[in-house]
Amino acid sequence: MSTDTTVEKSGGSGVGPVEDVALYDVDHPAPLIEAPRKRTSKTPRATRGNFEMAAWLFMRLSGVVLVVLVITHLLIQLVLDGGVSKIGFAFVAGRWASPFWQVWDLLMLWLAMLHGANGLRTVINDYAERPNTRLWLKGLLYTATVFTILLGTLVIFTFDPNIR
């Protein structure tokens, strides 16, 4: 605590030049303002849930893994072995014959969808100001995310090269 209790004449403190007197002195001490975030006896043990922190960390961890998963995927699909021209049912059948690429695609599906959905949740929080709009947009986002993850997972696990 500073002992200098006179208010500056102008500038800095934001107090204009009118108050040309000391507002506080030894006998009239300034009211004590609690430091922000100071823990008091009334502060609960956990001051916030861990969810936002976990989400923040997840964005970074999944991001690092996605760099490898997605860029390799693009290289395989668009660059190597004739680029897009070779893609077709037979090509997919060949790739999903290997458990390695099944797991690869599964991991890519879950991580990219959860990473993207959490990113969109942030974007909605930033721009949709009316509580109702937020509720609806997030409801739509979560529905689409769950649907896409389930559909993609189902497709990988039930793929049938001899569909006819």
Binding site: V84, L120, I163
Partner: peptide, 29 residues
């Protein structure tokens, strides 16, 4: 980030056509 998310949504839908028939998938691809 938002663009990639929208693409991924469509992409999983088009890939799901492998469960419909080889022709349906090849047509879209």
């Amino acid at each position: 980030g938002v663009l990639i998310f929208f693409f991924l949504f469509v992409h999983v839908l088009d890939t799901a056509l492998v469960r419909v028939s080889p022709e349906a998938y090849d047509d879209v691809v």
